[in-house]
Design a protein around this nucleic acid. Structure first.
Lengths: 150, 150
DNA sequence: TATTAAAATGATTCTTACTATCAATTGACA
DNA sequence: TGTCAATTGATAGTAAGAATCATTTTAATA
């Protein structure tokens, strides 16, 4: 279950080639676990190790990695796509908490969606294979600031 | 709990004014319940009743209606925002099923998220006020096409 | 109803995330 | 190593949406 060992095989399976650019983009994502990088941010990081890379290649690679389900695409409604390394072996995105006040993003480790998905599948006869869940609200720090004495 | 009666009051509360353009945009959304209209689509519909309206006004109005929580903004990863009339009185979005094969969107009437939100609030000390949930998978029709005999 | 200040509009330009194009290059396999 | 399809980088193009600003309209007052 190691991405590095199977990356080339995963590409070959679809007739794609392993290039230094593709490796470099994946490396950036692997070195920024917990972040939610935009394509532009990935481009900035990857240029440090691979200065000749073009922005278009980063856009293409990031789409490819998403297609291979190696990375997950996220949107936090700021007009651009963000990416994070997928939880390899799990076939669904994990959830995010978005604070309406400070904008901070928190990761939810638990999935907790199985029971809901079973109900949805039964009622709507829709076979669920993935989901994207975002919770909006007030984070612990912002809540403390608004209610200092409690 | 009628939008039409309170729309002017909701605007006044924030120092906004009721204009024919704002009424016309809201009317379009009310006349297309179940749809997920893009701003451009709303513009096309609203021009029928209000031909002098400008596209910029539609963009501004749609943002205003979202701020007032009268409509919900949706994104189905096709690069543009979509809107639907919010379930007035409920304070959260309802869920959507997105078929990976035909692209059709289905509405989920049930919320089913209360138990999860309680768990998230407890563990992450994050006060949840809203959520956006999308399920991806295979709809009933597409499943039937792939497995005709079952 | 007339006055007035603030808010809103429409036309237009601008921004920017992302895509398309294409000649040159590179990787995988024989 | 040679071949060929896949890939790349540079650049131009696309389109959703934001910003600007002179003109118009709304709503609260007199």
């Amino acid at each position: 279950m190691n991405i590095n060992n199977t990356f080339k095989d995963m590409l070959k399976e679809k007739g794609y080639k392993l290039t230094t650019q593709r490796r470099a983009v994946l490396d950036v994502l692997q070195n920024h676990i917990g972040d939610h990088l935009t394509t532009e941010e990935i481009y900035q990081y990857v240029k440090l190790q691979c200065p000749e890379i073009g922005l278009a290649t980063v856009y293409r690679t990031v789409q490819l990695l998403e297609e291979l389900k190696i990375i997950d695409r996220l949107t936090f409604d700021d007009g651009c796509n963000r990416y994070e390394l997928g939880t390899f072996g799990e076939d669904h995105h994990h959830h995010h908490l978005i604070c309406d006040f400070c904008g901070q993003i928190f990761e939810v480790e638990e999935d907790l969606m199985d029971a809901i998905e079973i109900q949805v599948e039964k009622k709507y006869k829709f076979q669920v294979t993935n989901h994207k869940v975002k919770f909006y609200g007030i984070c612990h720090q912002c809540h403390a600031k608004k209610h200092p004495t409690s």
